[in-house]
Amino acid sequence: MKKSRSSAEVYLRFLQLSEAIRGLPSLPPLDPLEERILGFVASARQQQSRLSVRDMMAKAELGAPATIHGRLKSMREKGWIILADTEDARRKQIELTRGALQHMARLSRCMEQAARA
């Protein structure tokens, strides 16, 4: 009978694989707060809901509005997000770039590969 891998082993394998793709030429790395913001944006996308800059700045768990605004600007410059116009010119919707979606797809493949190994 073949011994199954523990959840910890699968996770550690995933970390190894995901670290390997970070070395590939792609988008510049995010700092920990930017990673959290990316998670909020990706989650909103998955739920097919809109997430505006104002919505993001209202998330107290991410810090002061000025800090969040600075991170959003940094993420735009790094190519992770874009700010799209809405019906209200004063509100901008946060969207993932094609590069961000490709990065997430690579991470997903790493997760699948780690679970199969």
Rank of each mutant, 00 (worst) to 15 (best):
M1Q: 04
M1V: 06
K2V: 13
K2H: 10
K3I: 12
S4H: 09
S7Y: 03
S7N: 11
A8L: 15
E9P: 00
E9H: 03
E9R: 11
E9Q: 14
Y11P: 00
L12D: 12
L12V: 04
L12E: 13
L12Y: 07
R13Q: 12
R13Y: 01
F14Y: 15
Q16S: 11
Q16L: 11
Q16W: 02
L17W: 01
S18A: 15
S18D: 13
I21K: 04
I21W: 03
R22N: 09
R22V: 07
R22K: 14
G23H: 09
L24Y: 06
S26V: 00
L27H: 04
L30T: 13
P32H: 02
L33H: 08
E34H: 05
I37S: 10
I37Y: 08
I37E: 07
I37N: 08
I37T: 06
F40W: 12
V41I: 15
V41K: 07
V41H: 03
A42S: 15
A42M: 11
S43A: 14
A44D: 04
A44V: 04
R45K: 14
Q47I: 00
Q47T: 02
Q48P: 00
Q48K: 15
S49C: 10
L51H: 06
L51A: 11
L51K: 09
V53Q: 11
R54K: 14
R54Q: 13
D55Q: 10
D55M: 07
M56K: 06
M57W: 01
M57Q: 15
A58G: 10
K59Y: 05
A60S: 13
A60G: 04
A60E: 15
A60Q: 13
A60L: 09
E61M: 08
E61S: 13
G63K: 09
G63S: 09
P65W: 03
P65C: 10
A66D: 14
T67K: 13
I68D: 02
I68Q: 05
H69E: 14
G70W: 05
G70M: 07
G70K: 07
R71T: 01
R71K: 15
L72H: 11
K73T: 08
S74W: 02
S74M: 08
M75S: 03
M75R: 06
M75P: 01
M75D: 05
R76W: 00
E77M: 09
G79P: 03
W80M: 08
W80H: 14
W80D: 01
I81G: 05
I81E: 01
I82M: 07
I82A: 10
L83A: 14
A84S: 12
T86K: 06
T86F: 04
T86P: 02
T86M: 11
T86Y: 05
E87A: 14
E87M: 07
D88V: 07
A89H: 11
A89F: 10
A89Y: 06
K92A: 07
Q93W: 04
E95I: 12
E95K: 14
E95R: 15
T97D: 07
R98P: 00
G99L: 03
A100Y: 01
Q102R: 09
H103V: 01
H103P: 01
A105M: 10
A105P: 00
A105I: 03
L107S: 00
S108V: 08
S108G: 08
S108L: 15
S108A: 14
R109K: 12
M111A: 15
E112Y: 03
Q113Y: 04
A114P: 08
A115P: 01
R116S: 12
R116D: 08
R116I: 01
A117S: 15
